[in-house]
Design a protein around this nucleic acid. Structure first.
Lengths: 109, 109
DNA sequence: CCATTATATAAGTGATTGCTTATTTAATCA
DNA sequence: TGATTAAATAAGCAATCACTTATATAATGG
C-alpha cells in the first residue's frame, strides 16, 4: 500500500457523516433511502458520500431492483483496523428501530 | 472518543506529506529544519503541518534552545494503530543519511 | 548590542470539500 | 403505457485545504 492509496483511504473515512455511515454498516447492510432518514440528509448528499466510500473501496454495492444495498467491504486490507476504529465510537442515537418506533418509513418497500 | 475527535485525528493523518512526517518520526525525533530538507518543503509549510499534527495530539514538541524537537505522542490512544498504519507504508527514499551523504546540512547546529 | 538562525504567524491564492437544488436515469407497478 | 420511486449526476457555492511570500518572534553567538 503506497502513500497515495493510504491517503485516499483515510480521506474517505475522515468525515463525520461517513464515519456514521460506516458505523451503521458495521451492524447491517443498508440502502441510501435508509441513510437519508438515519442521517437526516438529502438523497444526493448521501449518494455522493457512498460514491466516495466506494471509490476508496471501503464499501460494496449490490443492486436489488430499485434499491442499492450497501455493505462494508470485508475484503479490504484495512477492514480489521476499520472495525477497531468504529468500535471506539459511540452508538448513534438514531437507529432503524428508533425511527420505526416514531412511525417513520425507514425500510425500503 | 467521539466522532469529532476521531474526525480531526484522521484528517490530520490524511495527507501525503504529514504521513511522511509521521513515518520519519516513527524512526527518530526530528526538528523542522530537518523536515524542510527531507520533504523538500518550505519552512512555513512544514511548520503549519506540525501545528496540525500537534492540534490533533499526534505529536509532541520539546523546545531546545533555537530548535524544536518533534516526537510521536506515544501516549495517544490511537498510537498503536498509527504505528500499524505507518508500518504498511514504504520507507521514504530520502533519509537523513542519504542527505548527509550528498553533503547537505541536515543536522541542526 | 547586533547579526544570524530557527520557528511561528499572517495574508493571499488556487484547488478541493460537502453541501444545495435541479435534472436525469432506471426500475417497478397500476 | 404512464406515474411513481430510488438513485445518480450536474452545476453552483461557501468553507476549508495546502501551499506561497512576507514578516514577526525568539534564541544564540560574535
Amino acid at each position: 500500500m503506497n502513500y497515495t492509496e493510504m491517503e485516499s483511504y483515510l480521506k474517505a473515512i475522515s468525515d463525520h457523516n461517513r464515519m456514521l455511515i460506516l458505523k451503521y454498516l458495521s451492524k447491517e447492510s443498508l440502502c441510501i433511502c435508509e441513510f437519508t432518514e438515519l442521517l437526516d440528509m438529502t438523497q444526493p448528499a448521501v449518494s455522493q458520500h457512498m460514491r466516495k466510500l466506494k471509490t476508496a473501496e471501503l464499501v460494496t454495492e449490490e443492486k436489488r431492483g430499485r434499491w442499492t444495498i450497501w455493505s462494508l467491504n470485508v475484503r479490504h486490507v484495512l477492514y480489521p483496523m476499520l472495525i477497531h476504529l468504529l468500535s471506539l465510537l459511540p452508538e448513534p442515537e438514531v437507529t432503524v428501530e428508533s425511527l420505526m418506533a416514531e412511525g417513520k418509513k425507514v425500510v425500503c418497500e
